[in-house]
Simulated scan of single mutants.
Amino acid sequence: MVGSDCRASPEEFAISRLVLWNIDLTLLDVGRVMRAAYAEAFEKVTGEPLVYLTSTAGRTDSEMFFEFCARNYVDIEPDVDTLSQFLSGLETAFEARVGELAAKGRVMPGAAASLAAVAAMPDTLQTVVSGSPREVATAKLVAFGLDAYVNLGVGGYGSVNYPKSTLIQSIRLHAAERMFADSETVLFTDNVPDVRAALIGGAVPVGVLNGPTTEGQLREAGARLILPDLTDPRAVMSAVHQATTDSTTAR
Rank of each mutant, 00 (worst) to 15 (best):
G202W: 07
P193S: 12
Y149V: 02
L152D: 10
P212R: 15
S238E: 05
A197I: 13
T26R: 02
P205L: 00
G158V: 05
V195P: 06
T244R: 00
I15R: 06
F180D: 12
A137T: 06
N161G: 08
I171Q: 10
M1D: 15
E40W: 08
H241F: 11
N210A: 02
A148E: 15
T60H: 04
I76Y: 00
M64D: 02
Y38K: 03
A93M: 07
S88H: 08
V74A: 08
A113Y: 08
L230V: 01
T92L: 14
V136R: 09
L227R: 09
L187Q: 06
G110S: 03
V154H: 05
D5Y: 08
C69S: 05
G31M: 09
G47V: 12
M1K: 12
V45C: 01
V129L: 09
P133D: 04
I171M: 10
V240N: 00
R32N: 14
T124M: 06
V204T: 04
Q217P: 01
T26D: 14
V136S: 05
V19R: 00
I226Y: 05
A139V: 08
W21L: 10
E184C: 09
V107L: 10
I171A: 11
Q217G: 08
D81F: 03
N22M: 06
A139I: 08
V74Y: 05
